[in-house]
Design a binder for these strands. Structure first.
Lengths: 207, 207
DNA sequence: GAATAGACTATACATTTGTACAGGTCAAGC
DNA sequence: GCTTGACCTGTACAAATGTATAGTCTATTC
């Protein structure tokens, strides 16, 4: 697909945000207001360009709020791959994409992590699952949560110890991990796991 | 909430459908066209009533496509509780509600079943999970699927046998179920399980 | 029998909205 | 210097849109 300019990307982003937050694409003049344009024609030109480049379509001539996104609406929450050590969670190293899951898992900042390995197998959390996380540092003792350890997001039972934390797997083949602030200065609790989404393909045969 | 009349329910349903299919609520005149009204005012009255009864809100005076649903949009797929024996799946006995999951799990008719019991524990399918099913009679041998047995939907590994089917749990505490068409005339394959959605609350401590 | 509420027609009007025409600026490329 | 494309202003206009007023018909309720 033909690349956008920075300005065009801004406008596309605004349209996308409006669709998510208001449930309806904005009007031409709403876009103009947002960007401080004195004339709606500036928007029309950008929309024409975005149509030509294939990012949006229009639903008929003179149809109000007729902007439609061509690509699947990343309606949902960011799907995080790896988390850069020592950085706030916004600075995510590789964002795998988006997972489409509108407000099912309560309010607050929600994101998803793809589960690697089978260390939480006995808690019904399998490799490839998307763990849904609410971004919040507090977590109930013994609840399943996501912690950032050495730049990787790990799903474990999280227990508070007098030293720091114990990350307990749900698979006897794995050992619990004791975490102390001294040894792991980058360690952080991302938040409790509030849900799980699994997308199955073939090959899920009995063990 | 104050009950609707049949007509009002029709209109609310149309608004909901439009939001789902077009991603945007209809205009007053689009509703009038759909119901064959000669005057847009007929719609305005119905909308006023729906606002008064609390089913919708309006986004400002003179805002095009400003109808907003107050209740969470049942955007997704039906969540089936119990399935009546010997009936097509549309005739579901108790429909628990809707699960909000836009087209993640491929095309086709999709529905969800709440998992009861822990017979599929070792496949990472726990009690209370929502199993996402694609409605289709064919299923790969040994794949996880949902079968209708004695009016209840059960999630199991499904194997074809020369007699009929074997429903294999993923928990050694349970015995496989042999199904023959003679003994279980109502037996049906609903379809393969294509996904899973879990919504967690507190109390998911280690086993 | 009068009153009320739901449902709808007919017409009208101001606002909103998409679009068009005629320009202007500014940086990049030839 | 000239052209091109991205970007924006200013004005205008017709179509679309939400809303209002006035009235009709019907069934139900008091």
């Amino acid at each position: 697909m033909e690349p956008m300019t920075e300005r065009q990307a801004d406008i596309l982003r605004f349209i996308r945000d409006e669709i998510h937050s208001r449930g309806c694409p904005p009007t031409v003049r709403e876009i103009a207001r947002r960007f401080g344009f004195a004339s709606p024609h500036a928007v029309t030109e950008h929309l024409d360009t975005l149509v030509r480049k294939g990012y949006i379509t229009r639903a008929g001539r003179q149809t109000s709020r007729g902007i439609r996104l061509t690509q699947g609406v990343p309606n949902g929450i960011p799907l995080v791959g790896r988390v850069a050590a020592g950085t706030p969670l916004e600075a995510i190293e590789n964002l795998e994409g988006h997972i489409d899951l509108p407000d099912h898992f309560g309010s607050g900042e929600i994101f998803a992590v793809r589960v690697q390995g089978d260390s939480m197998r006995d808690a019904g959390i399998l490799e490839g699952d998307c763990a849904i996380i609410r971004l919040q540092p507090r977590i109930d003792d013994g609840a399943i949560g996501v912690a950032i350890l050495d730049g990787a997001a790990t799903v474990k039972y999280v227990f508070k110890t007098h030293q720091g934390y114990r990350l307990q797997p749900a698979n006897p083949a794995y050992q619990p991990i004791e975490v102390s602030p001294d040894e792991h200065p980058d360690f952080r609790i991302a938040g409790p796991m509030v849900g799980l989404v699994r997308k199955m393909s073939r090959g899920f045969g009995p063990g």
